[in-house]
């Protein structure tokens, strides 16, 4: 069995803060590493401002809502979650011009069975929606790891801004 290696090796004293599905976390604590675990078709978005040392991470499930957007589900969607992520990083001292933005996920974990419904593979729609939502904010991705058929974990260290993506069967890669 292939074991996952840790991407926290460079920060032995850091503690991982889980960013679950439909959650957003902002951190200014240099001891923390934000982590979106087990991303399949979902997408994790990491934002970092190195001058303000502020880190933000969002874990979206869907491109946009087909129904009502509520306080409870606003971070579930790329279309509503990304503007809030950017705004919250700014609120904590970040500036758009200094933001480094990285995203990962949008896989087809179950291969052809991932294509559900008439609107195509949700993983691809998610990654497209992230790119679009950032464009609408006047921003773009600095790095990304989208697609394929494997799950991913995305981590962002608040102290350094280093972003790693790890998958089953491959070494963690810095994005």
């Amino acid at each position: 069995m292939v074991a996952l290696s840790s991407s926290f090796d460079e920060l032995p004293s850091s503690s991982a803060v889980s960013v679950g599905i439909a959650q957003m976390v902002i951190s200014r604590d240099p001891r923390e590493t934000l982590a979106a675990y087990g991303l399949g078709s979902c997408v994790g978005i990491a934002v970092y401002d190195s001058a303000a040392r502020v880190a933000g991470m969002l874990h979206i499930l869907l491109p946009e809502s087909s129904g009502a957007v509520t306080e409870a589900n606003k971070f579930r969607f790329a279309a509503t979650g990304i503007p809030l992520l950017i705004k919250e990083v700014e609120h904590n001292g970040g500036m758009r011009s200094r933001m480094r933005i990285v995203a990962a996920g949008g896989a087809l974990t179950l291969g052809k069975l991932s294509v559900m419904g008439p609107s195509g593979p949700i993983g691809k729609r998610n990654s497209d929606a992230v790119t679009l939502a950032l464009q609408e904010e006047g921003l773009k991705l600095d790095a990304f790891d989208f697609g394929g058929s494997v799950g991913r974990t995305l981590t962002l260290a608040t102290a350094t801004g280093k972003v790693f993506c790890r998958s089953v069967g491959s070494a963690p890669k810095e994005l």
Partner: peptide, 26 residues
């Protein structure tokens, strides 16, 4: 339907059916 078998991170596998449902239900 026909079965599909994958070995991967549990969350990544569970996400696929879950986000299909999340389009329609809470």
């Amino acid at each position: 339907s026909c079965p599909a078998v994958v070995t991967d991170m549990a969350g990544a596998i569970l996400e696929t059916p879950m986000l299909d449902i999340a389009q329609f239900a809470e």
